[in-house]
Simulated assay, not measured.
Amino acid sequence: MSDILLELLRVSEKAANIARACRQQEALFQLLIEEKKGAEKNKKFAADFKTLADVLVQEVIKQNMENKFPGLGKKVFGEESNEFTNDLDSTYQYIKGSANVKSNQGVFPSGLQCVTILIGVYDLQTGLPLMGVINQPFASQNLTTLRWTGQCYWGLSYMGNNIHSLQLAISKSNSETQTENSDRESSNPFSAVISTSEKDTIKTALSDVCGGSVFPAAGAGYKSLCVVQGLADIYIFSEDTTYKWDSCAAHAILRAMGGGIVDMKECLERSPDTGLDLPQLLYHVENKGASGVDLWANKGGLIAYRSRNRLDTFLSRLIQSLGPLKTQT
């Protein structure tokens, strides 16, 4: 497993270099954009795009894994087809290419910082995520040279072994931030990152639970990364327009950290007093009756979290807040 993880880290950086290179020349970049059609299209967007960078990234990952581990390339699945005509998805943020967006307490609402390369590995039998890599190609920019540098995060949860790239930083900072965290939890117990298109009922309930610590941000991978980084306690999304390739990498990292990603709809419908295992997202079964990309949609929405205890408290308060809102609507 360590050999596979090392190769995933290596190929994610190769993919990040492609993403950065494709953004270097704006005139050229605009020629490399194609609108998605038919089954490829995400119904969330009126216009959904892919770029040559997306296709190259996905094909490079497939080919590199096949070369290193023969047969594994056929098990690589992703969002983009390898057909590209010039009638150009990482995300809209990648196409727009905004570099001067300011963060809100470390969370970027939009811009190139929200672009992520996501590689997740799951168990074919159980569907549980085993390892994940999130590469953020545009983590920081040198204001003199205008060159971007990236940051990479990884995690492995396999046969009782849980390791991740943030362990050293977390262990060093735990003693320093214990008092600070206690103060934060007593005054404003939760923070959440959400989609800009989240339902108003969810936004209202989150304002009740989290106060002013609700941060809109672009990109499902980036919002999950915010939870991995500890910038938010929760990433919550009620719609069915994220997919298995959006969540698997972060899910594996969060599992290694003691967290996970669960089905939101199932969580809200279960009794908080049952003590049953939470409905973790699984990755090996297609959605019945669906077609195209919807075969792999996270149909019940999702909630990403770092701490099970914190999630239980969050869910309890969210359900309480949603109750009156459902009655009113």
Results as ranks from 00 to 15, higher is better:
residue 220 A to Q: 06
residue 215 F to S: 07
residue 220 A to N: 06
residue 265 K to R: 15
residue 278 L to C: 05
residue 206 L to D: 08
residue 179 T to S: 08
residue 207 S to P: 05
residue 200 D to N: 03
residue 232 A to G: 10
residue 243 Y to M: 06
residue 253 I to Q: 09
residue 208 D to T: 12
residue 263 D to C: 14
residue 175 S to W: 13
residue 274 T to C: 09
residue 198 E to V: 08
residue 256 A to L: 11
residue 285 V to M: 12
residue 216 P to V: 03
residue 196 T to H: 05
residue 249 A to S: 09
residue 239 E to P: 00
residue 191 S to A: 04
residue 269 E to Q: 14
residue 269 E to V: 05
residue 195 S to E: 00
residue 205 A to H: 00
residue 240 D to I: 01
residue 256 A to K: 04
residue 201 T to A: 02
residue 230 G to D: 14
residue 210 C to D: 04
residue 229 Q to A: 14
residue 183 D to G: 03
residue 247 S to I: 14
residue 199 K to W: 01
residue 226 C to G: 07
residue 242 T to G: 12
residue 222 Y to M: 12
residue 183 D to E: 05
residue 223 K to S: 09
residue 276 L to S: 10
residue 267 C to V: 14
residue 282 L to V: 06
residue 268 L to G: 09
residue 253 I to F: 04
residue 223 K to R: 15
residue 285 V to P: 03
residue 231 L to K: 11
residue 193 V to K: 02
residue 245 W to L: 03
residue 174 N to M: 12
residue 251 H to Y: 09
residue 272 P to V: 15
residue 210 C to Y: 01
residue 175 S to G: 04
residue 190 F to N: 00
residue 220 A to T: 04
residue 251 H to P: 04
residue 194 I to Y: 00
residue 263 D to M: 12
residue 181 N to R: 15
residue 179 T to G: 08
residue 208 D to V: 06
residue 254 L to N: 11
residue 262 V to H: 04
residue 202 I to D: 01
residue 175 S to V: 01
residue 282 L to F: 02
residue 282 L to N: 03
residue 239 E to H: 07
residue 201 T to G: 01
residue 183 D to I: 09
residue 238 S to H: 13
residue 275 G to Y: 10
residue 174 N to D: 12
residue 239 E to M: 05
residue 218 A to M: 11
residue 283 Y to K: 11
residue 232 A to P: 06
residue 179 T to I: 09
residue 177 T to H: 11
residue 248 C to A: 12
residue 241 T to C: 04
residue 191 S to G: 10
residue 184 R to L: 00
residue 259 G to D: 14
residue 276 L to Q: 06
residue 219 G to L: 10
residue 230 G to W: 05
residue 211 G to F: 03
residue 275 G to N: 08
residue 266 E to S: 05
residue 206 L to K: 02
residue 201 T to R: 01
residue 222 Y to C: 00
residue 256 A to I: 11
residue 182 S to Q: 15
residue 198 E to G: 01
residue 265 K to S: 14
residue 263 D to G: 09
residue 214 V to C: 12
residue 255 R to Y: 05
residue 268 L to H: 13
residue 254 L to Y: 07
residue 216 P to L: 06
residue 244 K to G: 00
residue 247 S to R: 08
residue 191 S to R: 01
residue 209 V to T: 03
residue 263 D to Y: 04
residue 252 A to I: 10
residue 237 F to N: 15
residue 274 T to L: 06
residue 201 T to I: 09
residue 183 D to S: 00
residue 266 E to Y: 07
residue 242 T to W: 07
residue 253 I to K: 05
residue 231 L to V: 13
residue 194 I to M: 01
residue 262 V to W: 04
residue 218 A to R: 05
residue 242 T to H: 07
residue 273 D to G: 08
residue 284 H to W: 11
residue 273 D to Y: 15
residue 188 N to F: 03
residue 217 A to E: 00
residue 215 F to H: 09
residue 186 S to A: 13
residue 269 E to H: 13
residue 175 S to D: 15
residue 185 E to G: 02
residue 220 A to E: 05
